[in-house]
Each structure stands twice: as structure tokens, then as C-alpha cells.
Design a protein around this nucleic acid. Sequence first.
DNA 1: TCACACGTGATTGATTTTGATTAAATGTGC
DNA 2: GCACATTTAATCAAAATCAATCACGTGTGA
Lengths: 259, 259
Amino acid sequence: MSTATPKELSEVRLQKIATLLKDKDVLRVEELIALLAVSPATVRRDLAELEKRGEVRRIHGGVLAAAVKDDEPLFDDKATLAAEEKQRIAEKALELIRPRTIVYLDGGSTVLALARLLTGQNNITVVTNSLRVAQVLSNSGPKMILTGGECRLLSQTMVGPLSRAILDQVRIDIAFIGTLGVSLENGLTTTDPAEAFTKEYVMGRATRTILLTDSTKFGKTSFVRFGTLNQVSTVITDNHLSQNDRKAVKRAGVELILT
Amino acid sequence: MSTATPKELSEVRLQKIATLLKDKDVLRVEELIALLAVSPATVRRDLAELEKRGEVRRIHGGVLAAAVKDDEPLFDDKATLAAEEKQRIAEKALELIRPRTIVYLDGGSTVLALARLLTGQNNITVVTNSLRVAQVLSNSGPKMILTGGECRLLSQTMVGPLSRAILDQVRIDIAFIGTLGVSLENGLTTTDPAEAFTKEYVMGRATRTILLTDSTKFGKTSFVRFGTLNQVSTVITDNHLSQNDRKAVKRAGVELILT
DNA sequence: TCACACGTGATTGATTTTGATTAAATGTGC
DNA sequence: GCACATTTAATCAAAATCAATCACGTGTGA
């Protein structure tokens, strides 16, 4: 049996693939089969065509977005996905840090990018619950306080009620927080309850809270809520943010900084 | 049997390795096997490919970031100094750990060797102030609580009064402690006051304290004292310990285990 | 209506990738 | 320098993916 019913023209399919790659950078053939509801053969033909046009790079089992700049880091897991955006967000965040302030750095890749910019800055104090941040700053850099708590393997952070013990004893001028989801209805959300606890607690203690997140997180909702949008004083994100979301942020009385 | 089940595409894996090296400079093959959940053969093939691209430098047992200079001090080497002795001491220590106990792991290379033996043991709970220990156990292994506190760069540990906050809230069955000096007159000594504070505090709270140290530390005295010999219940060291020191330990009422 | 081009799906054999096994190479300690 | 353990490289089998070909259905135009 075979159906030659092009529900959509092949050109539309090619466009779809190109769009998907913008967000994800890497796609498996299997994914595309499910996503486009076509046979493996068709997907491969499409990919061959796109490769001929130079829009993608094929690899065994999938396809990569053709790196615009060959030497630039491409993409990969969450840690460097959209690394360029994160980098710019981090640079904006850096401008908010004055000498002798005490900053809190959350887990998450965007905040980690900020941490990389702080190496060598030894006129500030960093409080963090992230082992990754600690690694980055462990050689040279600011004075560092780790919160302690239960170690969450996936995110390499210290979370949960135990972290409160130390947080109670330190002052935090500016807290830089990441998130997996932001929305007006569901607020700020993440996957792990213990992680949410710590984020929420830090936000309660910090003089200012600054949310660092790329625009793709807007409108998304994860599992556990750790606060509402109007609890943060500033949001820094990239300029792909939709007009609707921009208005929503401002309506919540939150300062908005775009890269 | 062999499985070719690529959960992620090879290119993604390569990128992950490159990203990991950005933060860590050096990775062992074993680490990568656990981290990427693939076979040794695949890791080596990946490393060979990355080396061909000039992104990494391979060494026996692991891989270096290509940027690392040859003469740069690799902070790891302390761990391999008297590695065999430390390994044997750690193995003796392991025998003292029963299921469902809560163990505290101090900083220091001998204790770190013990931590390496605990990977995969998920029927115990580890409390530690060492970032190195956290790294070793961060992939798979026991439940882990980090103490928090001020981060001491050289030893990669969290120390000082702040660490008390969390220690007050957990029970510790067995504390494994390292030291830079042991003697009857000056007791247990180390270089950093804040570090000494935390060691002393842990010893005060643990049901049992076990000192892990190679025999070269006997008779030496460092800067700050964090306790006396008779405050520990057991000493584990290598059999190069002099007869005099053996007697001294026993005279202090401390159990002595030699490798 | 019929022939035919076109796109799609299915089938089959080739290629790639992975993991296991085994032998060689490299360190490490004595 | 020698024995030992660990790490690496090479080889092979299994699984997955890919490319080439064929078959089928739809739409088009005579």
C-alpha cells in the first residue's frame, strides 16, 4: 500500500525542518518521522535536498543545523544550547554588579555563563548553590560561599531545606536566578521540588532578584512553582521575546532588559 | 551481544565532551564512560575523533583540554603521589562502613580515595565538605549532603563557621578525617584555621571519628590544631609506621589499623 | 478514458555505529 | 630491570541507519 497524498507540499516540509532546527540545533531522523508523519524514506530525501542547498549538515542518525560560523561552538546539551544568547544575557547581567556587592548565583546554564565572566573579579563575594559555578570560580576569583544542602545529581546543585541554614546567615544583595518556565498564570517553575524550595528561599532573602533566562522559556510551565513574575525586580532575556510577553513583564511591574 | 542504541547522536556526544573540558581541563576516561553512559570503546573513539580535530589532547587514562599548557600544574597530581598507600588505606576504611550508615568525608587525598570506592554504593548517605568528593560521587552513587560554608580554593573544601549551620542538622555515624600532622604533643594539625574549625566541629558531632593518614604525617606539626589523638576512635595508616608511633597511638587508647 | 510523470512508501542489501573480546602498550611499584 | 596492573588498540558481531530500487496511488493532459 502506498499513499501519494501530499497533505503538504514537499517544500513546506523542508521549511518546517529548517524551522525546527533553529530551535533545537540537532534532530534525529526518528524525531522527524514522528513530527512530520511521513516515512523514513521521505525524511531522508528531504534531508538530502536540504544538505544540497547547504542549509543543514547530515550525520548518521540525524541532522545538524549548518553552523553559520564553522569555528563557533555549535550547540549541544542544555549547557551550551543557544550559548550565544546566554553569553549576551550574562554580559548584560554583569553590568549590574558593582564592587563589594554580595551576589547569589543559582544553578542553570545562563547563570553559569555569568559565573565565567566573574573569574578574576575579587572585589565581590559570590554565594552559590551550584557545583558548576564553584568549579568555574574555584581557581581564581571572588570570595565564594557555598550554601550546602542535599546534592541534586542532574543539575549539580545543592538544594532543599538544609540549604536554609546557611542562607539565613548571609546577606544577599543581588540574586541571579534561572528558570525552566515563566508565565503569568503559573509564575516561575522548575522540575524539582527541593530545587524550587531553595530558589524561593533565596528570592525571599535577596534585596534584588534578577531573572536570567532566554526567551524560549516564556510561556512554558514546568512542574513546581517557586515564585511569581512580580517577585523579581528585573528580567534579562534575548530580544526574540514576543511583544505580548514584553508587555506582560512590564505590566507585572518588572524591569525588562533585552540583549 | 552488542547494542547500537544511540540515545544521542555521536556529534552531540563530542560536543558534550568539549563542553565538559571547558570547565574541568582534565577528564578521565572512566568519568566520561559514566557521564555519557556509553562503552569505553565509544569514548575512546570519540576522543580519537576530537584529537584529530585538534580540540583535545589525549593522555594515558584521560584527556586534556587542548588549551592546557604542558607545564601547567594539574591539581590532580597530589592524588597520585602516594596513590597506592592511600588506596590501601581507603580499602581498609571501606570495610568499616555498613549499609545505611551516614558517613562524613573530609577533604584530603586519602579520604578522596575512599570516596572513589563509594561510587555505586547507594545504600549509604555521604556528608562532605569537599568539592572533590562531590565531583567523584556526583554521577552515580550514594545520596549526598554538602555542608556548605566558605570555599577554600587550595583544598577545594567548604569550611568555617558557616558550615556549622548544616552540620547541626544532620547526624553523622562515622567521620573520616584527614590531617597534615599528627603528634602526641601537638595533636592533629592543619594549615587553615577555618578548615580546622570545621574538622573540629565534625569530630565533636560524629559518633565515631576515623583518622585516615599515611604514616609520613606522624611526628609532623602544621599550623592550627583541630583536636588531639585521643579524640579519634580509630587510626588507619600504612605499615611503615614506626614502632614508637604505634605504641603512642595505642597508649592514647586509639584503635590502630595498618594496611 | 488512458497513458504517464511525480511523489511517496516499502523492501533489500550496504554502510555505520556501538559494544564485547582479546592482544599489545603503557605505567607503576619493587 | 622485571612483574604487575591498568589502559589502549584492533578485531568482530549485532543493531541501527542509510541508499538504491521497485511498487503503488494520485493527478494531469491528451
